[in-house]
Amino acid sequence: MSIQHFRVALIPFFAAFCLPVFAHPETLVKVKDAEDQLGARVGYIELDLNSGKILESFRPEERFPMMSTFKVLLCGAVLSRVDAGQEQLGRRIHYSQNDLVEYSPVTEKHLTDGMTVRELCSAAITMSDNTAANLLLTTIGGPKELTAFLHNMGDHVTRLDRWEPELNEAIPNDERDTTMPAAMATTLRKLLTGELLTLASRQQLIDWMEADKVAGPLLRSALPAGWFIADKSGAGERGSRGIIAALGPDGKPSRIVVIYTTGSQATMDERNRQIAEIGASLIKHW
């Protein structure tokens, strides 16, 4: 067993022997301040990774656009098919120029040779490549099948209805392509620590998230040296922004954090800054 596999296998073990965790309302004060600064709703939840206990939450059962955070769930569904012998990570998928959609920095470079399922998941999570996500959605049967996968996990809230990039439209009061912070946090925890996926697939999923290259201005910008984070960000229309993450000190994750916002007129930089400040408060009061 590799060191990384050992780390993920012992996530519940280490967490069980940690000192009790206590909620700190100071972080919620910052979440509410972010709402004021952005002029928009902000949803927040913080779960203990081992027990699933909610440590703090704000608007945990209000719907927010998922945006690209759905790509972690998508690759979880792909990995479940791999575990069941219905898919192979090494299978190569070929596609054409007509398949390319807006923001496809990886797939646009491989029109000639195609990409493997493993490479597509890596591109979808680490670079948020939209064509990679659409190609992977095709392998599982489309958005409705991802929703069905989530329902089978016990998540009857999260739903995907459309493809990239239309799913980022974020129309107010439109339930399409949305989740709730509580539902997303619980589902992410199941994917990373539950028995739904094999140990190898859980490790692969967290490795992809740990290698995320496009979430630097968010929670990662607030992390002290030595902290662990595996995350996936999302951005959408109407001032929408979000991030889902597993993080913790001492090089291992111990909490799940989900943050979503929508309806702001603020710039992307300002949305990023507010999420980073929430992260800084979380870490300060850990």
Rank of each mutant, 00 (worst) to 15 (best):
L146D: 08
K232Q: 14
G251Y: 05
D36K: 15
M115A: 08
T198E: 14
R91W: 04
E119A: 14
F149L: 09
K144G: 10
G226K: 00
A124Y: 06
P165C: 04
R41Q: 14
E61D: 07
T178G: 12
N173R: 08
D177M: 03
G39V: 14
E164K: 03
N50M: 07
T261S: 10
L160N: 02
R118V: 07
I45Y: 00
L47D: 09
G90D: 01
I45S: 00
V157T: 07
R92C: 04
T126Y: 01
R220M: 12
L73T: 12
R271C: 10
A245P: 05
Y103Q: 05
A124D: 14
T107F: 15
L146Y: 15
M268R: 03
S128L: 10
E145M: 03
E102N: 15
G141N: 13
A124P: 04
D99L: 13
L218M: 05
V82Q: 08
H94R: 11
D113W: 00
T193L: 07
T178C: 04
G242S: 09
L197Q: 08
M66C: 00
E237K: 10
G279A: 08
G114A: 10
M115H: 12
A170Q: 07
A182P: 08
R159I: 00
M180C: 05
R241P: 04
G52Q: 13
A230R: 10
L247V: 10
R63M: 14
M66D: 00
G236T: 06
T131N: 06
A211F: 04
T193G: 09
E169S: 09
V78N: 12
R162D: 11
Y103N: 09
L79N: 15
M180D: 09
G234F: 07
L136I: 13
L100M: 02
A215N: 03
A123F: 15
I278F: 01
V117N: 00
N173E: 10
E56F: 06
I275R: 12
A132R: 02
H110M: 01
A185M: 13
G90R: 04
T261A: 13
Q265M: 06
L137H: 15
N272G: 00
I45W: 00
E169R: 09
L120E: 15
T267C: 10
V214F: 14
N272D: 00
E26V: 08
K284W: 07
R202C: 14
T186R: 01
R92H: 01
Y103R: 08
Q204Y: 03
H151S: 08
I259S: 08
L47W: 03
L111Q: 01
P25H: 08
M153Y: 11
L73I: 13
A222G: 11
S264I: 11
P181I: 01
N152F: 08
R273Q: 11
D36T: 09
T261H: 04
T116N: 09
Y103M: 13
T179L: 10
D48P: 09
S221C: 05
N152S: 10
T179I: 01
V78H: 10
R92K: 02
C121M: 01
R241K: 08
S264G: 06
Y44K: 00
M184C: 07
T193D: 04
L28H: 15
G279R: 08
P172K: 12
F149P: 14
G39N: 15
T262D: 04
T262E: 14
V82R: 14
R59E: 04
T186F: 14
T186I: 13
T267S: 11
A132D: 02
V72Q: 02
L282R: 07
A235K: 02
L282D: 07
A170V: 10
Q274K: 12
G90A: 03
N272K: 00
G279H: 04
T261I: 13
E87F: 11
R255L: 07
L49M: 05
S128N: 14
Q37L: 11
T131P: 05
E62D: 00
A230N: 13
A245R: 03
A211G: 04
I275K: 13
F70Q: 05
L136N: 10
R273D: 06
A245D: 04
T138I: 07
A200I: 15
Q203G: 05
D83S: 11
H24A: 07
E277G: 08
G90H: 03
H151I: 08
T27G: 02
E35L: 04
D48A: 09
E175K: 13
L150R: 14
R59L: 06
V82I: 11
L223K: 13
I278T: 13
I93A: 02
P181C: 03
N134G: 07
P143T: 09
I278E: 14
N130A: 03
I171W: 06
V157P: 06
V106Q: 15
H285Y: 06
T193V: 08
L223M: 05
G279K: 05
R176P: 08
N152V: 10
E46P: 06
N152A: 10
A200V: 11
R273H: 10
D48V: 15
M67L: 13
A133E: 03
A222P: 09
G154F: 14
E237Y: 05
A183C: 14
S128A: 13
E102L: 04
I171F: 04
T112F: 14
E87C: 12
C121L: 05
F228C: 02
T187P: 14
W208N: 06
N134L: 04
Q37I: 11
V106R: 13
S254W: 15
S254C: 12
T138P: 03
K53F: 06
M268A: 01
G114P: 02
K232Y: 02
K53S: 10
L100E: 09
Y44G: 03
S96E: 03
I229T: 06
P105D: 09
L73A: 11
P165F: 09
G141I: 01
E26R: 13
Q88L: 13
G251V: 09
A235M: 01
F70K: 14
Y95F: 06
S128T: 06
G236C: 02
R162Y: 12
A245L: 10
T112N: 00
A148C: 10
G279S: 06
A230T: 09
G216L: 05
H285C: 01
T158V: 06
M67C: 15
Q86L: 01
L150E: 15
S281Y: 13
H94C: 08
M153Q: 10
M67D: 15
H156T: 10
S281V: 12
A185V: 04
G234C: 06
A215G: 05
Q265K: 06
L150S: 12
G114I: 01
K190S: 15
T107P: 13
D33A: 01
S254G: 05
E87N: 15
K30V: 15
S201G: 10
K232G: 13
E210D: 14
C121F: 07
T198K: 05
M184K: 08
G234D: 01
G242C: 12
D250L: 07
T126V: 08
M209F: 09
L73N: 14
P65H: 04
R238W: 12
N152R: 08
A40Y: 08
T69W: 01
T193K: 02
K53M: 06
A245G: 10
W163F: 10
P65E: 10
E175L: 13
R59M: 01
K71A: 10
T187C: 09
E237Q: 05
T179G: 11
I45G: 00
D99R: 07
D113I: 00
P181N: 06
G236Q: 03
T147C: 03
N272M: 00
K190R: 15
D212P: 14
G141W: 01
